[in-house]
Each structure stands twice: as structure tokens, then as C-alpha cells.
Design a protein around this nucleic acid. Structure first.
Ligand SMILES: [Mn+2]
Ligand SMILES: [Mn+2]
Ligand SMILES: [Zn+2]
Ligand SMILES: [Zn+2]
Lengths: 141, 141
DNA sequence: GGTAAAAACGAGAAGAATTCGCATTTGTGG
DNA sequence: CCACAAATGCGAATTCTTCTCGTTTTTACC
């Protein structure tokens, strides 16, 4: 189970934490809002509170288990932190999220900051696009 | 004055709109929240409502007079749209915002999206740093 | 295994940022 | 100037997230 992953972080192993981490692992390719997580857990008959979902996701972020992103518009989205950094492409029409890594961009960012004598802590890069996937409602605009 | 700029957009020339555009022009180098704008106008004895500030900034964004950015944390920030695109460096310690343009990154973004057959509408790139300016409270961390 | 202290939970209230609804005022084209 | 659509200011409403607090769980230790 996920007990170990959670225990390793120093957090207590509780039912909500196990369920949330489980869900994120099963959907490691997705980017979910706290409400998404909450509703999915409710659907599978888990008795959990929305506040707990927010709390746990924030804690998981703190210990490096999940990453939080602020895309344009409302809610924050969360995803399991599967190690190597990546940035995002978001479709403005269907919301589909795709990931990419570009070493040229990464390197360039570092040198821009270095030139100024600053130190880069992190960055957020999101490309807002119109995608071309067959189920996207952008056909015929 | 700003009457022309506003009139050209098709928006009515009203006192709140003139004052807001004026203020943004006087602080063309800054990145202000709606509340910043509101408070600055109140300070100079303008009778204006916060809702109007939000409304007008959103309208200005719609007609291309201002740009809105979603940096990490609370409020959106606004700045006068002075033409050429740029991205941002934000200091996590003092909030200082610096701007930059990097054609290598811009080009790379376009090709990443093109490779997937998507079309790039816009992007958001923010480098979160610790700056080295003398008035930044990051000395001694 | 039992137990006490610390930690976490769920529910609802509270907070922060933004938008909405509406009565009143203002700008504009004729 | 006038009529009327559009814009304003106010407070209420929304939306997203965090906090508070009484109750329940977890865990370290016996
Ligand atoms: Mn991702
Ligand atoms: Mn800027
Ligand atoms: Zn799409
Ligand atoms: Zn700084």
C-alpha cells in the first residue's frame, strides 16, 4: 500500500491520506483540483471532508509528494510528483493538459536569472493553446 | 489626456476609466493589484468603487489596454500593455518584479506547440527567485 | 493489547478575491 | 439639450481556500 510512502514523510498514516495518495497514484497522468479529488473519493463511498482534502494536498505538497499548479482561472490543480520537472500545455477549449520538458528553455531561464545575480527558486511555464485532439470542441471556430 | 486612448477602444469616456488609465500610465513600470489601484485612487480623493476598478481593468484587458498576470498567491496583477510581449521574474522575498524577453525561449515555445499540431494562443512564464537588491529582506537567511 | 498524549478529522464558519444585481448617475448621438 | 443606453457605486453573492473546534484516530510506550 501507500503506508510506507506516507510514513517516510513523517506524516501519520491516516485513512484520508492513504485514499488521496492512492487516487493520485491511480491517476498519475492527470491534473486534478481539490474538488475533483473530493468528488472522486465521495463517489467511491469514502467519507471525507473537502477541508481535509485541501489540508492533505497542501501537506503532501510540503513534503514533496505532490505538485500544485496555478493555471489560468479558478482552482489550483494537483498532481503526483513523479520526480523530474516538467512544464505544461493547456488547451483553452477543452482543458486538456499535456506535459513537456525542454532543456533549452530550462537552461535559458537559469542564465537569465544568473545574469542578474539572482537565484532561481522555481518557475511556472504554461503554454495556452488550441489543441487538435478529436474530442476537443475547437473544431469549427 | 487619455480621452482619445479610451475613445478609440469604443468604450465610453468616463471619470473612473480616465483615472485608472492615468494611474496606470504614471506607473507603467509597476505591476498593481486591483486593490492597489483602488487604494491609490482613494488616496488621491477619487470617489471610486472597488467593483468598478475590477470591471474597468477587465474591460481594459479586453480591448488590449492592459495585461493581467496571475503570479503565485492571491491577487491578479495588472500593468499597462506597452506593446511588445515580456515575461516576469518575481522575488519571493520582497515581491519585486522584473521583466525580460528571451527570443530563444519564445521560439522554443512555438516549436514545441507546433510539433504537437496545436496552436499557441499565449503563455505565462514566471521565474520565482531570490533577488539581490539592497532593500530585499533576503540578506541573512 | 491497553492507554494517554498528540495529531488529524469533518463540518461549518470565516476569509480573501472577484463578480453580480440593482437603483442611480452619466456620456453620447441625434 | 434630450432620451436612452451604458456605466457607476454599493452591498450582497460567489468561488475557492483556510480556520476553528469538538470529536475521533494514531502512535509511542508500558
Ligand atoms: Mn504535470
Ligand atoms: Mn510586466
Ligand atoms: Zn482542446
Ligand atoms: Zn527581493
Amino acid at each position: 500500500m501507500d503506508d510506507l510512502e506516507i510514513r517516510k514523510t513523517g506524516l501519520k498514516v491516516t485513512a484520508p491520506r492513504i485514499k488521496i495518495l492512492d487516487l493520485l497514484q491511480q491517476r498519475a497522468d492527470q491534473h486534478l483540483t481539490a474538488e475533483d479529488v473530493y468528488k472522486l473519493l465521495i463517489e467511491e463511498a469514502s467519507d471525507i471532508g473537502l477541508a481535509t482534502v485541501y489540508r492533505v494536498l497542501t501537506q503532501f505538497e510540503g513534503v514533496g509528494l505532490v505538485k500544485r499548479h496555478h493555471f489560468e482561472g479558478g482552482q489550483s490543480v494537483f498532481e503526483l510528483d513523479r520526480g523530474p520537472h516538467h512544464d505544461h500545455i493547456v488547451c483553452l477549449d477543452c482543458g486538456h493538459v499535456e506535459e513537456f520538458i525542454d532543456e533549452v528553455i530550462e537552461k535559458r531561464q537559469r542564465s537569465i536569472v544568473k545574469e542578474k545575480g539572482f537565484t532561481l527558486e522555481r518557475h511556472a511555464l504554461v503554454l495556452y493553446t488550441h489543441c487538435s485532439r478529436s474530442d476537443c470542441p475547437n473544431r469549427g471556430d
